[in-house]
Simulated assay, not measured.
Amino acid sequence: MPHSNRLLELDALRGIACILVVFFHFNVNQPDAWHWLNLGVAGVDLFFIISGFVIFYSLERNHNALDFFVSRFSRLYPAYWVAVCITSALVLLNGGTVHLHDFLVNLTMLQGYFGVEDIDGSYWTLGIELFFYCLAILPFITNTVKWVEHFIWISLFLVYNWHYWGSLYAPGTHAKISNSAQFLNHAPLFFAGIFFYLIGFKKATPDRYFGVLCCFILSCYLHNFFGRSQWVITIQEHVWMLLAFFGTFFLLLSHQLGFLVNRVSLFLGNISYSLYLIHQRISTEIIRPWLQHHLLPHMPNLIYSLIMLACSIGVASAINFWIELPAMRFLRQNWKRLKTKFEVKQESVLPL
């Protein structure tokens, strides 16, 4: 697979993953919803695999840990802060409650580690992503990238043993820690993304293919261990979704996903982060009740879902266009200028 600044197929996959999650949230617990839409709960699994793939790609392109930190911060936080503020304001205007303490802690994106409720239910994955970023950058900081596959194998072994033996002999402690450090419940998906990256961009080896297989098996095993999917779909349904996601990445590596790339999928991929952040609570707690009680009572759930999707895409597009992209450009460009200025100053004080 050739290197490129942006893999269009991955952008399309982001858009698809986001739509899966969005329609799941719009239809969950609705009496006339189609059950198969519940399969969208597994869309976050696809996001996690994509993250494992993309973050390693990004790490190898950044020159140091600070470059990576600025890159991730500029990508995640400005749009997130705006989404938190918009959601909080609309909930308050609608007569709901958002405590100041919860609001401030949510701004850190680390609320899950402090036992604070997410202002929007979709935020639960963000703390997991941040944990993975911190974990992924360690080999680059410690100059041990060549050992990264060994670290993954050790991590997979530890994750399996933690869940197997912990649930048997220390169920209380196991549950408490697994609920706080939720990366433990989804780690194989991120590691699968890394293996896919190594196969596609480095070298396809039997060990790496076997690594993908182990990640798949362990992800299936973890269905019943504190993931969200276990409450919505059966393990059989989850396994089929995971098969589809892992199979999709094999198609990606063999250049067979070009048919997914079009204006719609790329547009959804571009706004997927903002759409993910803004769609759930506003739609299900404000827009749907307003539609049901005032504007369009007694309509099929599909109609409500399409209207909520249109509203969510509109707000997400505005956040993406006015906040996410400009803030990302501004922060990254100023960081480059600051680095250049610092390097020039360093050179000017070097002895002749």
Rank of each mutant, 00 (worst) to 15 (best):
L253I: 07
L253N: 01
S272L: 01
E285F: 11
S283Q: 04
L257P: 07
L266W: 09
L252N: 00
H255Y: 11
S254W: 07
L257A: 06
P297D: 03
R281K: 15
F249I: 01
H293Y: 09
G247D: 09
G269T: 03
G247N: 06
L243H: 06
Q256E: 13
F246C: 04
I278N: 00
Q280M: 08
H255I: 07
M241R: 04
N262D: 12
Q292H: 10
F249G: 00
V261G: 07
S272D: 05
M299P: 03
S254V: 05
G247T: 07
L260M: 14
L252D: 04
L242Q: 07
L291M: 07
F259I: 14
L291S: 05
L243I: 10
W240F: 13
I286V: 12
F250N: 03
N301D: 08
V264H: 12
I271S: 05
L266D: 08
L253A: 06
H255G: 13
P297V: 02
L295W: 14
V239T: 11
S274A: 11
V261K: 05
I286W: 06
F267M: 10
T284Q: 13
N301R: 03
L260G: 09
E285A: 13
S272P: 01
L252H: 04
G258N: 15
L296K: 06
F250P: 00
N270V: 08
L266V: 15
H293N: 14
I271K: 02
L268Q: 01
W290C: 12
F246R: 00
H298P: 03
F267D: 08
L242A: 02
L296M: 15
R281Q: 12
S274C: 05
L266Y: 11
I278S: 00
S283M: 05
S283T: 04
N262P: 09
L268F: 07
W240G: 08
S265G: 11
S283Y: 03
S283V: 03
W240N: 06
Q256G: 13
L291R: 02
L251C: 15
L277Q: 02
H298L: 11
R281N: 08
F245I: 04
M241Q: 12
M299I: 10
A244N: 02
L268W: 00
T248L: 11
H298G: 08
F267T: 13
L243V: 12
L277G: 02
S283I: 03
L251D: 09
F250K: 00
L260E: 05
F267S: 09
N262V: 08
V264S: 11
F250T: 01
G258A: 15
N301K: 04
L243W: 07
L268H: 00
L277P: 01
F249Q: 00
R263L: 13
R288S: 12
S265T: 15
N270C: 12
V261I: 14
F249L: 01
L277A: 06
G247W: 07
R263A: 15
L251Y: 09
I287G: 01
L252E: 01
G258C: 10
I271P: 03
T248N: 06
S254C: 04
W290E: 13
S254P: 04
L253E: 06
Y273S: 00
N270S: 13
M299L: 08
L260C: 14
F245L: 04
I287T: 11
L277Y: 02
L277R: 03
Q292D: 12
N262F: 08
S272N: 07
I286N: 03
L257S: 05
L268A: 07
L260S: 06
T284D: 08
R263T: 14
L242N: 09
I287W: 04
W240M: 13
